[in-house]
């Protein structure tokens, strides 16, 4: 695909639109899903099945006044929500939804997504710091230490997959899982990997995505029962809206990564329809799992969370890395 001005602009617009629409309707899905789990109807007044609820909520948020607390660092306060949204949208650029639908495929795609994810944690930090609110401050420190702790097992697990694929190109990784359903990375015995620990690394990766995106049960950054609303305590209006969208965009990216690295990307288990639909089915099933988990479990403690990372996930993923390296040497 040739890089032209038109392509770039369209790609950026599509990425933003995709992120925004996803964020809006994932909120809707989350509310409906939570309601179903709790045996309530959920939003059902505006439009059929309440489908007009997200745009109306958006309009309401936009109509609100942006209040900046006195004593806050104004520039950082405004910059933080933008910073939350920016990396998420940038990451969409390199995610291949199918063989053709990718804005810009890069041979360092995996690395790029992690680099921008790292950028995302600074937004939490600045949001918490600039709010001049003790709850926000505590929450942002929590959230950042959490993201830093979970980046490590996540990266190690990704390296395992990269080692198996021999490439950091997301397209390439998917291509190697093509074929039957059994050649997906998550299934150990038939694919390229021959690594029987692959389901475990899938689990580790999925847990890390939960933690990286600050989702329950790891949502310590916005632990509403102890830290009020966490790092976005002081945010109202579209500032809050951007954080919200950023969170859901991150969920989508995390699920995309899981799909690509473990579930064979757009590879279809059996024919039927084109690959991009399979990608989207896998993506939304993972997101549904996110929602399902969110409404089932209580929140962990901060030390429980760090213990999980340092005492369980990192040793296991390191062992997995060594094991995979050994296997690659043997086979």
């Amino acid at each position: 695909m040739r890089l032209t001005l038109f392509n770039v602009v369209v790609a950026v617009i599509i990425a933003i639109a995709f992120a925004a629409v996803n964020a809006a309707y994932l909120v809707w899905a989350e509310r409906r899903g939570a309601a179903r789990i709790q045996r309530r109807p959920g939003p059902n007044i505006n439009g059929p099945f309440g489908l007009l609820q997200p745009p109306l909520d958006g309009i309401k948020l936009m109509a609100k006044q942006l209040t900046i607390p006195g004593g806050a660092d104004k520039i950082l306060f405004i910059a933080a929500p933008v910073l939350a949204m920016f990396p998420a949208i940038m990451s969409f650029v390199t995610i291949p939804f199918s063989e053709n639908i990718v804005a810009k495929n890069m041979n360092v795609g995996v690395l790029m997504i992690f680099a921008f994810a790292a950028l995302g944690s600074t937004s939490l930090l600045f949001a918490g710091w600039s709010s001049r609110n003790k709850y926000a401050m505590m929450a942002s420190i929590r959230a950042v230490s959490q993201t830093v702790a979970y980046e490590i097992p996540m990266l190690i697990t990704t390296i395992t997959v990269v080692m198996i694929a021999g490439s950091m190109d997301l397209m390439e990784i998917v291509h190697q899982q093509s074929g039957s359903i059994l050649s997906w990375n998550i299934f150990p015995l038939f694919g390229r990997s021959h690594n029987i620990l692959m389901p475990m690394s899938f689990l580790i990766f999925f847990t890390c995505t939960l933690a990286e995106t600050n989702r329950a049960p790891f949502d310590l950054g916005e632990a509403e029962s102890e830290l009020v609303a966490g790092f976005h305590t002081e945010y109202g209006s579209m500032g809050f809206g951007l954080f919200f969208m950023g969170e859901y965009a991150n969920i989508v990216i995390g699920s995309c990564m899981t799909t690509i690295l473990f579930l064979g990307g757009w590879g279809c288990p059996f024919g039927l329809f084109p690959g991009v639909w399979w990608f989207i089915i896998k993506l939304y099933l993972l997101i549904a799992t996110f929602i399902w988990i969110r409404w089932t479990f209580p929140r962990t403690t901060i030390y429980g969370l760090l213990n999980l990372s340092w005492k369980i996930l990192i040793p296991l993923s390191l062992f997995n890395l060594l094991f995979t390296a050994g296997l690659l040497k043997v086979f």
Partner: peptide, 13 residues
């Protein structure tokens, strides 16, 4: 109590 710990559904049940 479970909601204090961050789980919301048990409250509804």
């Amino acid at each position: 109590f479970v909601m204090d710990l961050g789980g919301f559904s048990p409250l509804m049940y």
